[in-house]
Design a protein around this nucleic acid. Structure first.
Length: 569
RNA sequence: UGGGGCGUCGUCAAGCGGUAAGACACAGGAUUUUGGAUCCUGCAUUCGGAGGUUCGAAUCCUCCCGCCCCAGCCA
């Protein structure tokens, strides 16, 4: 446990009650159902990048293993070569590792069990519990019946065991084209649970697999494969999302028919968050159609996107803990995720000064060539982070927003004739406003009080505002990318009949600012470095950054009370 | 509609027959060289609804209402 986590536990008094899955495990441990073992797995299909919803599942599965002194496997459910790619396998491994979890030597692939699964299928055929069916996909659908009407038996349902074995072998041997035949479980075409109406176990797919190449042309279906994978790995608690609840009878049926070890499947509600989408299909669409710049675009809810945005593993794990585990469908407020990052970064992030929307300030009574090194605190929350020095000179930049020519009554920053403090600098007073031909303010002429060095006045007079600033001639130019929510609607999928969910995309979700002026201490920052830019937010260096052109991402803005006051005006 | 689930504060979520935790959000106030942080305070007489059992119900029973999942040779 990191210091941050400890601190967090103390603060929230984490006597957090147990979720329903832990309750089940407690009970199993008490009754000795699995001989005291706890063994979970995280079983992604490598058909896309992982998102924050997967992070919830990863934290749950690895977390439970850790908590009970058990194990958690990383297993790729790679049973559909038409959708899966090696790139995804690698990204998933990276993401799980980055989140801080270790599968040690337990990296498995469903494809490693293909031969074994084939053998089990043959066993089922021999028991008269599976048959080769020649119905087309469309016919199979018709035979399945509907929600209210029972299905009817396939004409191929009563083939002899010998014929089934022969046909199944020939399916594997590649004698038939895609879709020509399937292997089905022989269960009950009238079962009210549609999943039990002779589900398909194998389909013919002449596709090259990322790992097994062209060794196979028949591939197992999820329902058939997944329970076997769990069984083979001696998983105790197979945790999955709610939509698989209706598949559990089938999960159990296969393992019971085979007479093999049977784990307990437990379903929980998947994570939804407002202002974003969370399905791999839709995220793929955003990537492929260029609405974002790749899977790791900082606006994406993918783990790689959050990482690039500046989120930390700790903040995501913390988020995971706080949202809880339950069975009710829910939509978590993205504000909670943001809160988790701020909470952590407040304690850890080095403070720096940066001006995003520069407005020039000339201090008329400050000597032309004078430069003073002012001492600045690196983190008021953590004295051990020490201090640094920032240069002060006659010409500075301040934030445009920190000046109002005709100040609103609640605005207490800089205005004509008004005095404010420059953080770690001096008190300055605005003496004159300079505008261009369009009437736009382009420069402020100010005076400073030499007695207020460091930001204190000997006469004890108060100034309400403290502004951040950067010395113009020492400043480092940089690009800063500001992100906003990707969608304008809380539920992006909530659209009129004739509209597409993508019409809810926020066209202003990315704003790139250049040039922004940073204090020179930021000049050497490298990709991944994180800072708080005082009064603005938490920022990190983007991988696009170079020594020639620094690029920062705003991970999350600071809480902004002033913005709220303005919104009410 | 057949089957499987779920309904507790704006959003998550505890609660497991003894009289509604916590977090986020929100609203006040204190404090402050970040309108940040921190610190106080407020925020469900009520648990989808209606009956019933009980000394006592969010918790048990009955009925009703609403939402989600299943008719891929996807996972």
């Amino acid at each position: 446990m990191s210091d941050f986590d400890k601190k967090e536990d103390e603060k929230t008094g984490t006597a957090t009650s147990r979720n329903f899955i832990e309750l089940i495990i407690d009970e199993d441990l008490k009754t000795g159902k699995y001989g005291g073992r706890v063994h979970t797995r995280f079983p992604p299909e490598p058909n896309g990048y992982l998102h924050i919803g997967h992070a919830k599942a990863i934290c749950l599965n690895f977390g439970i293993a850790e908590q009970y002194g058990g194990l958690c496997n990383l297993r790729f459910d790679d049973t559909n070569p038409t959708k899966e790619e090696t790139e995804y396998i690698e990204s998933i491994k990276e993401d799980v590792r980055w989140l801080g979890f270790d599968w040690e030597d337990r990296l498995y692939f469903a494809s490693d069990y293909f031969e074994q699964m084939y053998g089990y299928a043959a066993d089922l055929i021999k028991k008269g519990k599976a048959y080769v069916c020649d119905l087309t996909a469309e016919e199979t659908r018709e035979y399945r019946g509907t929600l209210t009407e029972p299905g009817k038996d396939s004409p191929y349902r009563n083939r002899s065991i010998e014929e089934n074995l022969d046909l199944f072998e020939r399916m594997r041997a590649g004698e038939f084209p895609d879709g020509a035949r399937v292997l089905k479980a022989k269960i009950d075409m009238a079962n009210p649970n549609l999943n039990m109406r002779d589900p398909v176990m194998y389909r013919i797919l002449h596709a090259s697999h990322p790992r097994t190449g062209d060794e196979w042309c028949i591939y197992p279906m999820y329902d058939w494969a997944h329970g076997l994978e769990d069984s083979i790995e001696r998983i105790t608690h197979s945790i999955c999302t709610l939509e698989f609840e209706v598949h559990r009878p089938l999960y159990d049926w296969f393992l019971e028919q085979l007479g093999v070890y049977r784990p307990q499947q437990i379903e929980f509600a998947r994570l939804n968050m407002n202002y974003t989408v969370m399905s791999k299909r839709k995220l793929l669409e955003l990537v492929k159609e260029g609405y974002v710049n790749g899977w790791d675009d900082p606006r994406m809810p993918t783990i790689s996107g959050l990482r690039r945005r500046g989120y930390t593993p700790e903040s995501i794990r913390n988020f995971s803990d706080r949202i809880g585990i339950a069975k009710a469908d829910s939509v978590v407020d993205i504000a909670l995720l943001e809160h988790c990052l701020r909470e952590e970064q407040n304690l850890r992030a080095q403070r720096m000064m940066a001006v995003l929307h520069p407005l020039k300030v000339v201090i008329e009574n400050y000597p032309e060539d004078k430069v003073e090194e002012m001492e600045a605190v690196n983190n008021p929350e953590d004295e051990s982070m020490g201090t640094r020095t920032v240069p002060f000179s006659r010409e500075l930049y301040i934030e445009r927003e920190d000046f109002q020519e005709e100040p609103h009554k609640k605005f207490y920053r800089l205005a004509p004739g008004r005095e404010v403090r420059l953080r770690y600098g001096y008190y300055i007073k605005c003496e004159e406003v300079i505008k261009d031909e369009n009437g736009e303010v382009i420069e402020l002429r100010c005076s400073y009080d030499p007695e207020t060095r460091g930001g204190w006045s000997p006469d004890g007079r108060k100034v309400k505002a403290t502004l951040h600033w950067v010395s113009a001639k020492h400043a480092v130019k940089a690009e800063v990318r500001l992100y906003d929510r990707l969608f304008n609607e809380e539920n992006p999928l909530d659209v009129e009949e004739d509209e597409n969910w993508k019409s809810n995309i926020n066209p202003d979700s990315l704003k790139s600012l250049y040039p922004c002026y940073l204090e020179q201490n930021l000049a050497e920052s490298k990709a991944g470095d994180r800072f708080q830019f005082e009064r603005l937010g938490y920022f990190c260096v983007d991988p696009d950054s170079s020594n020639e052109r620094l690029v920062f991402n705003r991970s999350v803005p600071l809480r902004d009370t002033w913005k709220k006051i303005q919104a009410k005006m």
